[in-house]
Design a protein around this nucleic acid. Sequence first.
DNA 1: GTATTTTTCCTAAAGACTTTAGGCAAAGCC
DNA 2: GGCTTTGCCTAAAGTCTTTAGGAAAAATAC
Lengths: 191, 191
Amino acid sequence: MARLGLTPQRLAAEGAELADEVGFDQVTASALAQRFGVKVASLYSHIRSTQELKVRIALFALNELADRAAEAVAGRAGKDALVALGNVYRDYARKHPGRYAASQLRLDPATAAASAGPRHAQLARAVLRGYQLGEPEQTHAVRLLGSVFHGFASLDLGGAFSHSLPDSEQSWSWALDALDTMLSCGSTGGS
Amino acid sequence: MARLGLTPQRLAAEGAELADEVGFDQVTASALAQRFGVKVASLYSHIRSTQELKVRIALFALNELADRAAEAVAGRAGKDALVALGNVYRDYARKHPGRYAASQLRLDPATAAASAGPRHAQLARAVLRGYQLGEPEQTHAVRLLGSVFHGFASLDLGGAFSHSLPDSEQSWSWALDALDTMLSCGSTGGS
DNA sequence: GTATTTTTCCTAAAGACTTTAGGCAAAGCC
DNA sequence: GGCTTTGCCTAAAGTCTTTAGGAAAAATAC
């Protein structure tokens, strides 16, 4: 009964580790309790439900990812910044598949608004500042960037690109080049 | 004990309905059994496990989606085809969120190869035929298309675009325009 | 320094879902 | 009609979630 210093934060961090090892949807209160060497019921002093635990892991991952993105973007501009930002998402998905899956958890609007989600949008906006887009083009571009980064990471992680040539690395470079060219080539006319 | 004509296919189809109503990860053998008015254990005459049920739902969704994509692309070319194909994915995700989530289920390589996945790639390739790309550019473009379609649908479904202006519909049009322009503008140099 | 309160762990138990085992009746085959 | 196969059932064991109530550790008050 020696008391461990458990907190919701530590549970989330360890849950993130667990997610990377066994997959986000295999994260259970039972497994997490085992990891800490306590009984399952004890976790309920710190979290209200398994759902809350998953939300906390998602928030943890979103935050960690935003931190890395911010670091990558700092001191860079233009295509350099674009590539750096894209690589953060891609690398994170590869190295931390469980956390990446967690970051995709559907959050209710209030939670989402209080999450690092908006920071991600701000970082994309910062990168796009180098491309001289007005509104509403910049917003459209933020969304396209998010779609490409997330879509590519998600499909690649799912193995969609792994059983054909050329390897995904090359497609990734090509996609970043294409995005850069497109954003540089000025306004897309608009329908 | 009047026998229903249950088959793995009917279970998958009804499971797809259920997924749309309650969410793919809320699909359980119990709930499905209730829907058919049979006891849970009875389902195990038709499926080996809940996991297999989910895989079957995923295959069902991938197939249905490929059918719709094929119909949309038939008789169209160029940007017209591009827009039609993109809209299939977007509409499917909006109208059938549970099935769309199912279609993202990670499949083992053998299952994935036997799924409608390759058909999706072929359809994207067909659309790109209108853009005169050589190899390996065409493969890169197939992957970029998939990333944008899936990424946008996924983020939009998650509400990422729903709490800011302009609405996602406009960003979607803009993204399609951008893709078309990018693909038309010829080879992206390639690093 | 002791008494009180709060926190955090525990045991116990109920409820939901999954899966296996074994039985019985309906469908299909000769 | 009899025989085999199939598809439904009941029963039961295992896992995970969640709540309730108790006991000891930590924090707080005097």
